[in-house]
Write a protein that binds this DNA or RNA. Structure first.
Lengths: 334, 334
DNA sequence: GCCGCTTTCTGCAACGATGTATCCAGATGT
DNA sequence: ACATCTGGATACATCGTTGCAGAAAGCGGC
């Protein structure tokens, strides 16, 4: 059927292993031999069988990416960038959607999916550190995001606290005093919601503004859920002059609901988000948000993971990378 | 290292091949034997090595998905759905971004990527049918989208012409007479742009409204490009009372630019899109658009591809599936 | 008791590459 | 002149499965 190394070897008049050596850039090969092999490869249109290579070598040059839902715009943009970065280093990315279900996160961690990949970019939303540590296996794993903060793991994350604090400070500086937060529960202190909420509280403290639990609305991080959250706020008649959506999708859903209800943005209520997805720039009004250095996150996490796979990163402890951030001040909260 | 079939066989006291038979649901196995094997598998926590299986059997249970850019919202949503549908049938999806470059489309077609997958969901933007036909290889391939319309290929597409016609008719019914189209060139007649433009022209004809090339603005199908296109229209002072963006991203970018320039939507200019991405519902004003039956497209294309792979679909000619559509009339063009 | 058929299970080869050991020729050292 | 070393190539085993052929056991029919 397909052309194999054997065919190439025969045509080039060398042994099978020599062909293999040429392909793997083995040092000691006479240029003439190498050329013969390359010519034969060319003539036959030979392409290495990755499955066989993978079986024999134990490496697949694939990275696994586990996230809850690829259609969420932040994840879509992140995945796209991760794939580009990985591609530049000769790796592919295999994506698995967990739907934020514990069982799916678990099976991604030690099921067939794990086996197919040389390393994992893992965005857990449900599992706790000890469970992960228990099933981590021997292949490298880089945590993406902040649901799990544990010194044992390599982690690439963003400055959630400081970024949320900066954004809240910006809203306060604009004269807002009753800033609703959508996407966290008042008691959260870990995970992305908790960390961003912490930043919010710090900014309030700094400004001497009291924290009001009624302003904190739990919500899934989706547009529709953001809209529902605003609905709830308005229906409960909790007064507020700003909404800080803990991600952009949420914030955009919230903003939409505000506008529908006749609330003027930003005159009556300012709206801020987090992520700086492309959509934010083109919303109306355009969305003020935090740009969390997505490209940096993509480059560092893929780089770290591949370095681990290839044994270039040897640190015994988990490496912890925190990407920088910038506020993008736009019309929704000038 | 890992547990192999051999370990299971030893523990269960049967031959290696019997273990394999159990795993592959071979018919003639005594229930007692089967149970012994299953127990051994359980006890050892055995998991089949997919790479070895794939090498031996020639099947990977992976589908390839080639698209230009995963961060484009339509593709992100589509990919997410395709993955879910595939997953339900026991397949994974490996995504490759082509960046709409011919060389990438080509290499996806017969490079290592092809080798890793049992079949391809292909969204070409550059290649022509004959090139594809020449390099298609022996594995199944399903065309997604309409850049290539060729009876030789299995194709899953949407009713571009009729949907665009219906949307244009809706705009005309709302009294709009100078409907700008963004995302096609006046001469296009093939591919998604061409087909949608054709639908537009048919609706104009039906209504007895003349076609004006100056209203047709070519553009990439991205938000920023949509914004630039509107900028160009306004700068050229071409009068228009509606904008039909040939996809939602485009339409949303266009709408954003209109609003920035102080043009009222929909009072001064109505805006319509195509795709019904989630974002459209939550835009302000919410975007009138065409819902092209994305779930149906996902189900039919994955179903068809897997049926081909498993030999259940035997038609010699290309199977052609056209998903239904619905207009979603929202505030941007009531 | 022999034949043929089905049921149940086994052994060996093969998929297409890479790792290890080895071999040979020529260069080098003494 | 002989042992040693090194560059350049090869042979063979191996990765963990599945396909194929066939063996052993059970069973009914004559």
């Amino acid at each position: 059927m397909a052309v194999t190394m054997n065919d190439v070897a025969r045509l080039a008049g060398v042994s099978l292993k020599t062909v293999s050596n040429v392909l793997n850039d083995y040092e000691f090969i006479r240029p003439a031999t190498k050329q013969k092999v390359l010519d034969a490869i060319d003539e036959l249109g030979y392409e290495a069988n990755l499955t066989a290579r993978s079986l024999r070598s134990g490496k697949s040059r694939m990275l696994g990416l586990v996230l809850s839902d690829l259609s969420a715009p932040y994840y879509a943009e992140l995945a796209s960038r991760l794939m580009s970065v990985a591609s530049a280093r000769g790796y592919r990315v295999l994506v698995e959607q967990s739907a934020a279900l514990e069982e799916n996160e678990l099976s991604a961690l030690h099921g067939p999916f794990r086996q197919l990949t040389d390393g994992l970019l893992f965005t857990p939303l449900r599992l706790d550190p000890d469970t992960v540590a228990g099933r981590i296996g021997s292949k490298p794993l880089v945590m993406l995001g902040e649901h799990i903060q544990d010194p044992r793991f390599d982690t690439v994350t963003m400055k959630n606290v400081r970024a949320a604090q900066a954004m809240t400070a910006h809203l306060l500086a604009g004269g807002r005093r009753r800033i609703a937060v959508i996407g966290a529960s008042a008691g959260d202190s870990t995970g992305s919601p908790g960390l961003r909420l912490t930043g919010y509280r710090r900014a309030l403290d700094e400004a001497g503004v009291g924290f009001e639990p009624a302003l904190i609305v739990p919500s899934e991080w989706r547009r529709d859920a953001g809209a529902s959250a605003v609905e709830a706020l308005l229906d409960r008649a909790v007064p507020f002059d700003a909404v800080f959506g803990l991600n952009d999708a949420l914030a955009l859903g919230a903003m939409h609901e505000l506008l529908i209800r006749g609330v003027k943005v930003p005159q009556d209520v300012a709206v801020a988000g987090f992520d700086d997805i492309d959509e934010a720039r083109f919303a109306s009004p355009s969305l003020t948000t935090v740009a969390p250095g997505m490209q940096e996150i993509a480059e560092r996490s893929v780089g770290l993971l591949i370095d681990r796979i290839e044994g270039k990163e040897k640190s015994d402890d988990g490496v912890h990378v925190e990407a920088g951030f910038e506020l993008r001040i736009r019309s929704s909260a000038p």
